[in-house]
């Protein structure tokens, strides 16, 4: 049983989410505006925030940024199809994952599950030296990574990338975030580097390579949640 904060200004969608999520045994709290969302997030400390980007008062990206100033609580963003730029902005501002409207409940619940588990992990092992994501163990102190006990042969940069993704397991890390963290502050647009390194990491991870998920045009996510969402991914590219 988790406490979920749903932030959306469309009353009908809010009702559907409340009914469906409550049926699963979760507690649902609703905020209609960005200001209300910030206040509820502070006072009720929800386990996860479901945040619509198009709010009547404060921009959803700004809500992400302000929550991140004081809390690591997982944030799953709801965004309209074709609004890739704001989706990326919200992830850069600290959101963990996104769901594109219109979405199926199974897909939303899968994302919430990932966010909840990794959110709890992150709260527990804050500053931990050893990071565990499924069969993968990353030891930041000794610069080693093991998969089911076998040591992976990684270059320094491959290790840095894997370690960053493991530290933010469950979060969709944008190209910009990864390049800045692993390559340095002078980088940010060289997403072709990432494609190469993601490919190498997947090959070295073997069967576990599916843990590293590609979000085309957005970034990468490392998660051990292998239950793929029941719904097919939204076909955002169709109209363009």
């Amino acid at each position: 049983m988790a406490r979920l904060l749903v932030v959306d200004d469309d009353p009908a969608l809010v009702k559907v989410l409340r009914i469906s999520l409550t049926a699963r045994g979760d507690e649902v709290v609703v905020a209609r505006t960005g200001a209300d969302a910030l206040q509820q997030a502070a006072s009720l400390r929800p386990d996860v925030v479901i945040l619509d980007l198009g709010l009547p008062d404060v921009d959803g990206v700004e809500v992400c940024r302000r929550i991140r100033q004081w809390s690591e609580m997982p944030i799953v963003v709801l965004s309209a199809a074709g609004d890739e730029q704001r989706k990326v902005s919200s992830l850069d501002a600290g959101a963990d994952d996104y769901v594109t409207k219109p979405f199926g409940m199974a897909e939303l619940q899968a994302r919430l599950r990932v966010a909840l588990r990794h959110g709890a992990d992150r709260a527990g092992d804050h500053g931990a030296v050893e990071l565990t994501v499924g069969p993968l163990v990353v030891d930041a102190a000794h610069h080693t990574a093991t998969l089911e006990g076998h040591v992976l042969e990684l270059t320094a940069r491959e290790f840095d990338l894997l370690a960053y993704l493991a530290r933010h397991a469950g979060k969709v890390c944008t190209h910009h975030l990864l390049l800045q963290a692993v390559w340095g502050t002078g980088y940010g647009t060289e997403s072709n580097y990432l494609r190469v390194y993601a490919h190498r990491l997947r090959r070295k991870l073997g069967d576990a390579g599916t843990m590293l998920r590609t979000h085309p045009g957005i970034g990468y996510q490392l998660t051990d949640d292998d239950t793929d969402p029941a719904d097919p991914p939204p076909r955002t590219a169709r109209s363009r």
């Binding site: 469309d10 969608l13 559907v16 989410l17 469906s20 219109p102 979405f103 409940m105 897909e107 939303l108």
Partner: peptide, 10 residues
């Protein structure tokens, strides 16, 4: 549409 899809899929 978002509401319709969310309710029906649920």
């Amino acid at each position: 549409l978002a509401t319709i899809k969310a309710s029906l899929s649920g």
